[in-house]
Design a protein around this nucleic acid. Structure first.
Length: 661
DNA sequence: TCCTATGCCTTTCCC
DNA sequence: AGGCATAGGA
């Protein structure tokens, strides 16, 4: 029996909630993770098969952590709970059930960079490229297309609202978007947005598939619901449409992904979007000392529309948050570093201290100092191991073996050869994409100087495709060939070589080739995870990547207009509200000590303007009373037996109507 | 016409 | 560290 006596009343109500729809509004530090973990364990104990529970979280890390904790309550079987991020769950479902929406099981997933180069290709093809200024760049194009999808608005509307300077190009942009979709389908590639769009389409327009999928989702649990967008909310509702058991957990004051289409309204409207939904509140904070929460409450009070909530804790004793005002980012780095070492001497391990920043490059001066002093740190946010250029090179080779129609991967590889640039590579790739049996045919290019290189490439790819059963071996064959190419690609290839050594063992962690190429895109592996050190290390993280985590000591850096709050938000009241919520998230990561650093100037990012002061902090009433100023896996899904379930047609109709306004 | 080398500029947040 | 424009070369 799992022990519910350690939970408070609200938590217990959520954990042992009966069937039906529930919204759990859980403020920062109120034991949300604990509650979800116990809920999973409780359901299993009640006899629900683990594989009939779907747990959707914001990061894979969060999912793993919860399942590990659930395992400690009910044992191994908790590992058969299904889920992950919305995107990775969509990936899993679409590989099995993607037929009706036009996907073969071997589709590839492209990341942002790949998507941009594909858009760029389309743009060039349509003669809108290069010199033709006045037409949006690939980055803007992809932004507009993605925004339009994630906020269910037309491209023209997005342009009018957010990129008025391109308003008159709406027709052309729509055309680019249309061709871009066509190309992706022809190549059997999907981007991040497609995963959501196609799953929503599958669930809403293909009743047989919905019936099969939703029947296996006896209980659907969604974490961080305040950061879901419209599509994700619809997907969650449709997954739960057969059994009607949907529990969403979130905190409207912590919604920080508006730029990605997240809608706070999802959580506010949940009771309407799912009939009969009940609301539970978790209010008591177990994480932080009262002085930290006082500041957090001050941040909430300064919001344009209040959230009408106050955090309280029984941990009344604790130090007041401290603010420092260093001259510039270098003095800031030195002062923070000094504090870190001071705390370490006092007995707080490095891993219990975290430095948080608004943008990942804002930590650069500190990282330099940390490196100089040989202080170990782990970085969350920013570029990751599997996103480094040379690692992506290898992945593109693997992707070609996995899906030979993956044009973006071909383009990257083909331009490595002398005499082959953008144009030549596009010609070759287009030929491959369109042929019945997609593969490289070197003999076509006999008279070119890169003929010999293509012959070699074709040979090594063929060799690799015979090794699909042994992903580690497959990767090694490709790396052996790639390594010889590296000196001509990167000046510092020696440093990069070391990274390649770990890729085969990384690949072996995944079940098969499909899982490897798709999951690595959806959840890029971090540097420390790839090379694996487990020494006591400081955490350096963006605020976004710190969501859901907590530390004894938190340092919040670069609190200056232009950095945090971001310069992009300064003249937009709505974006400023998101900055405010970001500040709230940052403050509530600290258990005990919180240091705010508000430098007087930042010199490293030239061009960007920094307005002296800090609008976020200044809008907090009686700030001086709150802050002291100092000087200074898939298993189980298919194997589990699923009871016959009747679809609830009325519910499905209701959900569809609600989301298709 | 297309490819390559060079120099300048810039860089939120993330699945 | 990568994107982009531009100039110069095949």
């Amino acid at each position: 029996m799992i022990d519910l006596s350690t939970l408070n009343e609200g938590q217990r109500a959520a954990v042992s909630a009966p069937d039906g729809a529930f919204l759990v509004v859980a403020g920062a530090g109120t034991g949300k993770t604990r509650t979800l973990t116990h809920r999973v364990a409780w359901l299993i104990e009640q006899g629900v098969a683990p594989w009939e529970i779907v747990l959707l979280t914001f990061t894979r890390r969060a999912a793993n952590e919860m399942l590990e904790r659930a395992q400690s309550l009910v044992g191994q079987r908790a590992q058969y709970v299904r889920g992950g991020t919305f995107h990775s769950f969509a990936n899993q479902l679409l590989r099995r059930h993607g037929g009706p929406v036009g996907l073969s099981p071997d589709f590839s997933i492209i990341d942002r960079g790949d998507a941009e180069s594909l858009v760029n290709w389309v743009r060039a093809e349509m003669g809108l490229g290069g010199r033709d200024r006045g037409f949006p760049t690939k980055k803007v194009l992809l932004n507009v297309i993605s925004k339009s999808i994630n906020t269910s608005r037309s491209i023209a509307d997005v342009l009018v609202d957010e990129f008025p300077q391109y308003e008159h190009e709406a027709q052309q942009v729509e055309e680019v978007a249309r061709v871009y979709q066509e190309r992706k389908r022809a190549q059997q590639v999907v981007d991040f947005d497609d995963l959501l769009v196609l799953l929503a389409e599958l669930l809403s327009k293909h009743p047989a598939a919905r019936q099969e999928i939703a029947a296996k989702c006896r209980h659907v649990l969604v974490d961080e619901y305040q950061d879901t967008n419209k599509l994700q909310a619809k997907i969650a509702a449709l997954l739960a449409s057969t059994h009607g058991n949907l529990m969403v957990v979130g905190d409207e004051a912590q919604s920080i992904y508006g730029f990605r289409g997240a809608r706070v309204e999802n959580i506010l409207e949940f009771p309407d979007s799912f009939p009969g939904a009940r609301v539970l509140l978790l209010e008591q904070n177990y994480r932080s000392v009262m002085p930290v929460l006082d500041l957090a409450n001050g941040v909430l009070d300064s919001a344009r529309q209040g959230y009408g909530k106050r955090l309280f804790s029984e941990l009344t004793e604790g130090p007041m948050p401290v603010a420092i005002a260093p001259w510039d980012e270098w003095e800031q780095a030195d002062l923070v570093l000094e504090q870190i070492l001071q705390r370490q001497r006092e007995g707080v391990p490095l891993s219990q201290q975290a430095v948080l920043v608004r943008g990942s490059h804002q930590a650069t001066p500190l990282e330099l100092r940390l490196n100089e002093r040989g202080i170990p740190f782990r970085k969350f946010g920013g570029q990751r191991f599997t996103e480094a250029a040379h690692v992506k090179d290898v992945f593109c080779l693997v992707r070609i073996v996995h899906n030979p129609r993956d044009v973006t991967a071909w383009l990257r590889v083909l331009t490595w050869f002398d005499g082959l640039g953008q144009k030549g590579a596009q010609g070759i790739a287009a030929r491959i994409e369109q042929s019945l049996v997609p593969k490289l045919e070197p003999e076509v290019y006999k008279r070119r100087k890169y003929h010999a290189a293509l012959v070699e490439l074709a040979k090594v790819l063929e060799q690799a495709s015979d090794l699909k059963e042994d992903v580690g071996e497959l990767v090694e064959v490709l790396i052996d060939w790639y390594e010889e190419r590296m000196p001509s690609l990167y000046e510092d290839y020696k440093r990069r070589l070391r990274d390649l050594e770990v890729i085969p063992s990384l690949a072996e962690r995944y079940e098969n080739l499909s899982a490897f190429v798709s999951e690595v895109v959806l959840d890029p592996v971090g540097e420390e995870e790839a090379h694996g050190h487990d020494e006591d290390a400081l955490v350096v993280s963006t605020i976004h990547s710190a969501k859901g985590l907590e530390w004894d000591v938190v340092y919040l850096m670069s609190l200056i207009n232009g950095a945090f709050p971001s310069g992009y938000a300064l003249d937009d009241p709505e974006q400023m509200e998101e900055e405010r919520r970001l500040l709230y998230v940052a403050v509530t990561r600290a258990r005990r000590d919180l240091l705010l650093s508000a430098p007087q100037r930042l010199s490293s990012s030239r061009g960007q303007y920094f307005v002296p002061g800090n609008e976020l902090l200044e809008s907090i009433e009686d700030l001086h009373t709150l802050v002291a100023v100092a000087d200074g896996g898939d298993a189980g899904w298919s194997s589990g037996k699923v009871q016959e379930a009747e679809e609830d047609e009325e519910l499905i109709q209701y959900i569809m109507d609600f989301f298709d306004d």
